[in-house]
Design a protein around this nucleic acid. Structure first.
Length: 447
RNA sequence: GGUCCGGUAGUUCAAUCGGCUAGAGCACCGGCCUGUCACGCCGGAAGUUGCGAGUUCGAGUCUCGUCCGGACCGCCA
């Protein structure tokens, strides 16, 4: 037997730690991101867990080792931390650098990278980028997007956790789709048909009966064969569901609070990445404006000159017009749109008793794109059974789900935020695939 | 599924009305450079123009077929 102790674990020497260590000798690891050779020596930039670190090495007596160094080698460096004023905003820490005593190659790539990841801008065709994802994501700007998405999701978890929500993990292999639609992936489950989850909706509602307030960060699957820059077939859904609401406005109010914290967390945790990418973070003022779908159509009809009044939903062009309008008129880059028609919303959506034909539901638009859908759900058993029948669904097919209603549920509602879409709009990235680590679309199953 | 656009060096892009040896940046290789920061300077190598057929004296360019991709639409909690 040997004992494994957590004492004496490797100190990762974060960028912040290194900034306070001028004059000290350190040994650390990294991967060579780029090398700039000058007559007297070289600048060796290491890619580390939390940024890029500049190392400096003179030629004298080092000709052979410098000659052997190459990008993407894993190295161990020993040297002295020195003050530096580095202008390149992809370097972090920027206030110090390492004056190298020795550098050892621990591991080297088998072949030269097919694309240039050493430059500030990774200038790749999207298809090349996605084919080479294990490599292209090593580029500081590419991986920064994933860090920002991570921080946003972390903010989501933190804020809900602090407000008494329980984080749940629900099955992704299900016996029926949450929407009953055709856009669902079928899988073989020991000879029985099963489906990949389109949404944790059913389980969130059951969760309300158990914990009152629940949330989940997880994958959802959509089998729609659409080919657009804002759709992928597997994405990360930030979901919550809460009991004892007075109306769907409570859900929207909570989203305002959650978003505020998510944006705070992104600013706080990824300021280096935001600056490197030149991101313009949105601000949330006192409130986020909210309009009904009818008002929305009136506005877009006036602006575009096209009559949109009879559209049951918002078209992509309308979403863009509305966001521009919201920013100019109300100073908000976020905009709620409420009261979507009954037939455009799933069967579990609560109808608005005051406005027949519409539902107590909302979308949140942000910078021209729908990033959230939510609303109040039906909590009474009989009402839910009736609406299923109206939708042409057989309640018997949803027996296990309906246990939640049958045994009593408080009035409740919730929402889902698309993480990759949110990240793409924060960073002004055109294609959602570029804010996804390994995107899945109709034509892409690898890497 | 529909409409439009594209496929040229490892990569990102040029190539005028169909006309000279298909060019350039970056990467790569060689040389130079005492603080770079998308370093700089000099030189070099690198191509079955997605694939197949056709028209033509001549095709990256025009036509047909085929494969692959992109944008938008349909669709979309």
């Amino acid at each position: 037997m040997i004992g494994i102790s957590d004492k004496g674990m490797t100190n990762l020497l974060s960028a912040e730690t290194l900034e306070g260590m001028a004059g000290e000798k350190v040994t650390l690891h990294g991967v060579i991101q780029r090398i700039r050779c000058l007559g007297w020596g070289a600048f060796i930039v290491l890619r580390r867990h939390d940024g890029l670190l500049q190392c400096v090495m003179g030629n004298d007596g080092n000709e052979e080792i410098l000659d052997n160094l190459d990008v993407e080698q894993s190295v161990e460096v020993t040297g002295t931390v020195k003050e530096a004023g580095i202008k390149d905003n992809s370097i972090h820490p920027a206030s110090v650098e390492i004056h190298v005593d020795s550098i050892d190659i621990i591991s080297a790539p088998a072949v030269q990278p097919p694309v240039d990841t050493t430059k500030k801008v990774l200038d790749l065709h999207i298809d090349t980028n996605l084919d080479l994802r294990p490599l292209s994501l090593r580029h500081p700007g590419e991986r920064a997007r994933l860090k920002i998405a991570e921080s946003f999701a972390l903010g989501f978890r933190e804020s809900l956790s602090n407000m008494g929500f329980t984080e749940i993990r629900t099955p992704k292999i299900c016996s029926a789709g949450a929407e009953g639609g055709a856009n669902i992936f079928k899988v073989d489950y020991f000879g029985r048909p099963a489906f990949l989850a389109q949404s944790p909706q059913f389980y969130k509602q059951m969760g309300v009966g158990i914990f009152e307030r629940v949330f989940e960060v997880g994958p959802v699957f959509r089998a729609e064969p659409h080919q657009t820059s804002r759709h992928i077939n597997e994405y990360t859904s930030l979901d919550f569901e809460m009991g004892f609401i007075d109306g769907f406005e409570d859900v929207m109010a909570l989203e305002v609070a959650v978003l505020r914290h998510c944006l705070y967390r992104v600013r706080k945790n990824t300021s280096y990445e935001l600056e490197m990418l030149g991101a313009k973070m949105p601000e949330i003022g006192e409130q986020i404006p909210s309009i009904t779908l009818e008002e929305a159509h009136r506005i877009t009809s006036e602006i575009s000159g096209k009559n949109c009044m009879r559209e049951p939903d918002l078209e992509p062009e309308e979403e863009k017009i509305l966001c521009r309008y919201s920013k100019e008129e109300w100073g908000s880059e976020f905009l709620f749109v409420t009261h979507f028609p009954t037939e455009k919303r799933p069967f579990y959506t609560m109808d608005d008793p005051a406005n027949p034909g519409t539902t107590l539901s909302f979308d949140l638009l942000f910078r021209g794109l729908e990033v959230t859908t939510g609303g109040q759900r039906i909590h009474e058993y009989e009402m839910q059974v009736e609406k299923m029948k109206k939708f042409g669904l057989d309640p018997d097919d949803f027996e296990s789900y309906l246990q939640a209603h049958k045994y009593g549920l408080p009035p409740h509602g919730g929402l889902a935020i698309g993480l990759e879409r949110m990240t793409a709009r924060i960073l002004d990235v055109d294609n959602i695939r570029l804010t996804t680590m390994f995107p899945r679309d109709a034509k892409r199953l690898t890497p």
